[in-house]
């Protein structure tokens, strides 16, 4: 079993580049990086600050042989992209890494100051030299972790444990409050939330399944689904577009909400939709290479919901 650096060096013998992480010299936490040769690969790391889902880059690398380092959740995106023919299995070398849950670096920085030293050891988390309760600083998505080890890989770097790292499945922090609201109150809630949206489109750009790029209907003029005005109504519309387009395709990787610079709780929408999809079709996106997205098919005998 090899460490991340050696594994990437090996994979580079058969690929044009490898998508992985390196340590950002300013902040000391991981940042995405591309490795093209052995020398660059020396800089590779994998630690609990590697939150980014690198699968988002795959649809833009259709003509390359690509190696990608993937955690369990990232692997679901890779699978979904293969199902949707955005990448070919043959062009990929997936380097699986076992994940012991990730840290919410933004939360740590907000609490302890930007760039504060983070030392994550197996049994303790040290922030600026002070021992803290690690559980408090875990990425939100890790509390609903479905697979800590990738379901698709060519080679494993480091160790996989076969265990889900967090024993606590927690709903979205706003979930309980949200479900207690009436529809009219939810309407106001969303208008309030979307009044903060700056239309940066980070939620779309960071989503592995939003690969339409310059033909995304959020911005097409004909037809014009959403107006160009940056206001709550139009920003809500772009999110309705996204949620609908992600139906049966969203793997719940949480990147959209993690990337939103103004903290709009987008996962409230996607969690609810994923839940409905699971209830209706017993389907979870990215779980299996053999699956067909549920809205692309129908089943006359099973599709009975007592309506019509």
């Amino acid at each position: 079993m090899n460490g991340i650096v050696d594994t990437i060096k090996n994979v580079l013998k058969e690929t044009d580049l490898v998508l992985g992480w390196t340590t950002d010299p300013v902040t000391g936490v991981a940042t995405p990086a591309r490795f093209h040769d052995e020398k660059e690969a020396e800089q590779a790391v994998f630690d609990s600050t590697c939150a980014h889902n690198l699968a988002v880059h795959l649809p833009r690398l259709k003509d390359s042989r690509v190696g990608i380092v993937a955690k369990g959740c990232d692997a679901r995106s890779v699978i979904e992209l293969i199902i949707e023919h955005e990448v070919q299995r043959e062009q990929l070398a997936v380097i699986g890494v076992g994940c012991g849950s990730l840290l919410d670096v933004k939360k740590i920085w907000r609490r302890y100051g930007y760039g504060v030293a983070i030392k994550d050891r197996d049994d303790s988390l040290l922030i600026g030299g002070e021992q803290v309760n690690r559980d408090e600083f875990i990425q939100r998505k890790c509390h609903g972790c479905l697979e800590a080890d990738p379901d698709i890989y060519d080679v494993i770097a480091g160790e996989v444990t076969g265990e889900i790292p967090t024993d606590t499945v927690r709903p979205h922090p706003l979930h309980d409050m949200f479900v207690s609201l009436t529809p009219a109150e939810r309407r106001s809630f969303w208008r309030e939330q979307f009044s903060r949206c700056i239309r940066c489109y980070a939620c779309r750009e960071v989503c592995p399944m939003c690969f339409c790029r310059d033909v995304c209907i959020m911005q097409t003029q004909i037809p014009r689904w959403a107006g160009g005005a940056v206001d709550a109504k139009q920003s809500e519309m772009i999110q309705l577009i996204r949620v609908n387009h992600l139906a049966g395709r969203c793997t719940g990787c949480g990147e959209c909400e993690r990337a939103c610079p103004v903290g709009i709780p987008l996962m409230l929408l996607l969690d609810e939709q994923n839940h409905a999809i699971e209830e209706m079709f017993a389907y979870g996106a990215g779980a299996s290479l053999k699956a067909r997205p549920p809205l692309l098919v129908f089943d006359v005998n099973k599709d009975i919901w007592g309506k019509g």
Binding site: P183, L240, A247, L268, L269, Q273, A276, F298, W305, K307
Partner: peptide, 27 residues
């Protein structure tokens, strides 16, 4: 048949979007 799946999902999501589910129907 394709519509049925989409419309049923939509009707389940209505309340999440903040629209009273009664305001949407398919028949």
């Amino acid at each position: 048949y394709y519509a049925h799946r989409r419309l049923e999902l939509l009707s389940r999501m209505m309340a999440v979007y903040g629209i009273e589910p009664e305001r949407f129907r398919y028949t």
